Simulated scan of single mutants.
Amino acid sequence: MRRTRALRALTGAVLTGFALLAAAGTASADDPSASPGTGRDGDGAPAAAGTTFRLATQIRQGERAAAEGSAGDYFYWVFPADAGQRVTVTATVKLPESAGRQGTSRWRIDVHDGLRRRQACVHGSQTKAAPADAASVELSCTLRTVRAWAEPWSDAPLPGSYYVRLTVVDLPQRDLGLPVRAEIEATSVDAGGAHAVDGRLATPLVPLTVTGPERDDRDSSQQEQDEQQEQDEQQEQDEQQETAEAAGAPEDGWSSGWWTDRWLWTAAGGLLTAFTTAAGYSLARGPGRRPGAPPRA
Rank of each mutant, 00 (worst) to 15 (best):
S28A: 13
G248K: 03
D73Y: 07
V137G: 03
S140D: 04
T145R: 07
S105P: 05
W258L: 15
G192T: 00
Q237M: 06
G114N: 03
F75Y: 11
A81P: 04
R8V: 11
F53E: 04
G270I: 03
R215A: 14
G193L: 05
E245P: 02
F75E: 00
P213E: 05
R147N: 02
G103W: 04
Y281D: 04
T187Y: 01
T277F: 00
A196K: 04
A91R: 05
G286Q: 07
R285G: 11
E151T: 12
D113N: 06
A135I: 06
Q85S: 12
R165C: 14
R8I: 12
S28N: 13
R101Y: 09
A47K: 00
R3W: 11
P32I: 07
R54W: 06
I59A: 02
G288V: 14
V89W: 06
G192I: 05
H112P: 09
D133M: 12
R106I: 10
E138F: 06
T209C: 08
A150G: 01
T38I: 09
R8M: 10
A186P: 08
S33M: 11
T4K: 15
R64A: 11
D41S: 09
Q223T: 13
A202E: 07
G12R: 09
R218A: 14
A202L: 15
T11V: 15
A148Y: 00
Q228S: 11
Q85N: 10
F275C: 15
R106A: 09
I109A: 09
A182Y: 07
A202G: 13
L264D: 14
E214W: 11
S70K: 15
A47W: 04
T38H: 10
G288L: 12
A130K: 09
L272F: 11
T38E: 01
S161G: 10
G12W: 01
G212F: 01
S136E: 05
I184R: 05
G25Q: 07
R5G: 00
V78Q: 01
L55E: 08
A246Q: 08
V169G: 07
A67T: 12
I109S: 07
G212R: 02
D190A: 12
V210I: 11
D30S: 13
S70D: 03
V87Q: 01
Q234W: 04
A156S: 06
S188F: 02
A293K: 13
T90V: 14
V180G: 07
S136C: 12
K94M: 14
Y281Q: 13
D31E: 06
V87C: 07
R117N: 02
Q173H: 09
V137P: 02
P207M: 08
V210Y: 02
L176C: 15
W259S: 09
P32N: 00
V206E: 00
A99N: 13
L272T: 08
A71G: 09
Q234P: 05
D41E: 01
S28T: 11
S154I: 15
V78W: 03
D41Y: 00
T273D: 05
S98I: 14
Q235S: 07
V14W: 02
Q228T: 13
G288K: 08
S125A: 12
S140Q: 00
R262E: 00
A191T: 05
Y76F: 14
P172V: 10
A29E: 08
L178I: 15
D170G: 12
P294Y: 08
V168K: 11
A129L: 04
L171W: 09
